[in-house]
Design a binder for these strands. Structure first.
Length: 284
DNA sequence: CTGGGGATGGGGCCC
DNA sequence: TGGGCCCCATCCCCA
């Protein structure tokens, strides 16, 4: 899946230095929201962990079975398992068609197509929002921002061919971030982005700061040990649904990610990356 | 070295 | 329009 809009922090291409983040939290708000075009210093930007603790994700009544429920958008090609992810078994519809790019039946209903990539959307606003991302990509490239990490091929033609030209159909960005070159077409998008600078959600236990409440919630589970996501096939439990999903791959006979050269399969994209990087497939 | 778990970032979508 | 949640991607670390 082309994470075309993956926003990399500018201070590092690695994981943040949490000691620094903690320092940030000490001086929070480090970046006042004065840069917002309006005075909308949304109180929502301030997170109160006490309330967050009450908002733990509801337990999924039934987790998806082992078979991959979400068609991977890996450019390296997910296995076309015989048990098609599009099979009619309703219990596998974990994704619910929420992902933007899988060619699920839902996509058939998406009549709004991006002319710069192959994505489709069910609504014009969604497409418009998506178009904004192309604009931002163009902007970042022109600003000399490093490529997003991951396999280069993971970026579809949209990014591969993106230039600094802004499509005439794309709305002009008018909300600028004072902390980085990013600009957005809506205040909401800007506010969301600014959170990555201000990190308003602070862990009451360790002071670690996060941009979003649910990131903090997940982090808090590391303190509480809460693991609401259980594997149906073993006794393992996870604090994060994504990690459970990755774990389920280990139960799968055929892994989701396959090397195009040697057909070896892997449970995670990262493992496939390691595999290709290790030189198993020198032709690539 | 490889596989897997833990943790986290951020866009997309729904309400 | 904004909040919340979902999902994917990725990095780090360890067995």
């Amino acid at each position: 899946m082309p994470r075309s809009f993956l926003v990399k922090k500018y201070f590092s291409h690695k994981k943040p230095n949490y000691s620094e983040l903690e320092y940030q939290s000490v001086v929070f708000p480090r970046h006042p929201l004065a840069e917002l075009p309006t005075g909308a210093n949304s109180s929502a930007l301030t997170c109160y962990p006490v309330g967050l603790l009450c908002g733990v994700d509801s337990f999924p009544g039934g987790l998806a079975p082992v078979s991959p429920s979400t068609p991977s958008s890996s450019p390296l090609g997910p296995l076309d398992l015989s048990s098609s992810p599009f099979s009619s078994s309703g219990e596998e519809d974990e994704d619910g068609g929420r992902t933007s790019d899988p060619p699920s039946p839902v996509a058939l209903q998406r009549a709004h197509h991006c002319t710069r990539c192959s994505k489709s959307y069910v609504s014009a606003p969604a497409l418009s929002h998506h178009l904004q991302s192309h604009h931002l990509q163009s902007h970042h490239r022109s600003a000399g921002e490093p490529e997003v990490h991951g396999l280069p091929s993971s970026q579809p033609s949209a990014s591969a061919t993106t230039t600094t030209t802004i499509p005439s159909s794309a709305p002009r960005a008018s909300f600028h971030c004072k902390h980085c070159p990013k600009e957005y077409t809506s205040l909401g998008a800007l506010k969301m982005h600014i959170r990555s600078h201000t990190l308003p959600c602070v862990c009451p236990t360790c002071g670690k700061a996060f941009s979003r409440p649910w990131l903090l919630r997940g982090h808090i589970r590391t303190h509480t040990g809460e693991r609401p996501f259980s594997c149906q096939h073993c006794s393992r439990a996870f604090a994060d649904r994504s990690n459970l999903r990755a774990h389920l791959q280990t139960h799968s006979e055929v892994k989701k990610y396959m090397c195009a050269t040697c057909s070896r399969t892997f449970s995670r994209m990262s493992l496939l990356h390691k595999h290709t990087a290790s030189g198993c497939c020198p032709a690539r």
